[in-house]
Write a protein that binds this DNA or RNA. Sequence first.
DNA 1: TTTCATTGCTTCATTGTGAAACAATATTAA
DNA 2: TTAATATTGTTTCACAATGAAGCAATGAAA
Lengths: 248, 248
Amino acid sequence: MELRKTLIERSENMWRDFLPHVSIDCVIFGFDNNALKVLLLRLKDQQQWALPGGYVRKDENVDDAAYRMLKERTAVDNLYLQQFRTFGQTQRSEGFFADYPDDLWHKQRFISIGYYALVNYAEVTPVKDSVSAECEWKDIGDLPDLMMDHRFIFNKALVTLRKQLNYKPIGYNLLPEKFTMPELQKLYEIILDKKLNRGNFYRKILRYDILEKLNESRKGGAHKAPDLYRFDAEKYRDALKNGLQSEW
Amino acid sequence: MELRKTLIERSENMWRDFLPHVSIDCVIFGFDNNALKVLLLRLKDQQQWALPGGYVRKDENVDDAAYRMLKERTAVDNLYLQQFRTFGQTQRSEGFFADYPDDLWHKQRFISIGYYALVNYAEVTPVKDSVSAECEWKDIGDLPDLMMDHRFIFNKALVTLRKQLNYKPIGYNLLPEKFTMPELQKLYEIILDKKLNRGNFYRKILRYDILEKLNESRKGGAHKAPDLYRFDAEKYRDALKNGLQSEW
DNA sequence: TTTCATTGCTTCATTGTGAAACAATATTAA
DNA sequence: TTAATATTGTTTCACAATGAAGCAATGAAA
């Protein structure tokens, strides 16, 4: 039993103290008023803002930890959550804690797992945590200064969203149940960061056969009332299995 | 300085012992003889095989740790390496260490970061580690039993490869410098797990204008000698910036 | 009642795709 | 030496998808 012997011998080294720990950062996206927004916290006594997050416990699945944190910040359960990348630079938190005592627990080496969440803006109530002074939605086109590497993490989340637009139910989770075609197109344009031709967008998205046109329109706007649609959840899921073909 | 006070107070909790640690698992792909292969280890006294991997040190960037492990197994530096997903289930190693003493260091909770590597098969020399009896290339169509969640991790790596085929220099890193069109097509077919029409493949891949046709052919085969190509590294890089358009 | 911006939908030239066939060629078999 | 064969290189053609533009419909505001 050579393997057993080797492992048990090595176990006496106290490697435990030489290993990093694990935290989570969440990029929570919402769509409101034709703008894509992120939920951010401002820490007490600080100018900089932060992504919601926290520490993973030893007895907790990482996904469960992410759901826990998400629920604490939004007061909503079971949001759409997607791990997108892990951030493992040694110096990622150095700047922020520079003038704290060296035995500060938070100064340990942490590796952070990045998640993005997609939420229905109208259903979420932002909730502060105990070290924050504010918790607010911010337009992604006008973000404040972020602490540590959180701006980098946010950028990676947005790029991931762009790449996954044809593979994940992104529109479905960001839009309210009923929405108009111009709203859907606007969401696509923001995520892709480019203008799309209106007629071609209509033609293409309708051909996917994932939308159900309702017998209602959104009155009250300044001009012609746009038709309301909703996703046909089942057809959408089926279509995503192979990915919506081709680029936008 | 409310934030400072809160953080320092909390630091007294010894959360350190309640946090998981971080390891790495690498799926190393190589392409040889028109087959896609993975580099696996068989542990001493064990039937099951394992992905190469190791533990991340406290003072080490995660990417650097992955390169370190990769070099140990392949005797080659600077391979193409890509983080693809982090595996955070609490019970991921439980089965394997079930009949080891509970204070075995390896029985701690580990969260594993998955990387895949793409290597030029001919340049790599598989190297065993100290707890392994064998280190070998295995055909992905005929994998042996893998320990813990390594089969799951492998599957995720393969799916990632498939999704990234149009965004990352996958052919470039798996093939030798000179290769034939049928070899390239075969690689695509294995990764995508579907047959491609030969004529259409030629037309499409050539239109991308990322290949350079050489004035040589591969003699010695049973039939017509296929032309040799190589990637035009610069054009390939440029083309990948926007992704090669459309699906295969 | 008219104006106007926006929405819904169609058209048309161009490009890309799937499927198939033909032509070329290096080896092997006769 | 010649013919057969499997594979490779290239082209064709019908059809589908795309980009760009325009026209018609509509609801609010002037």
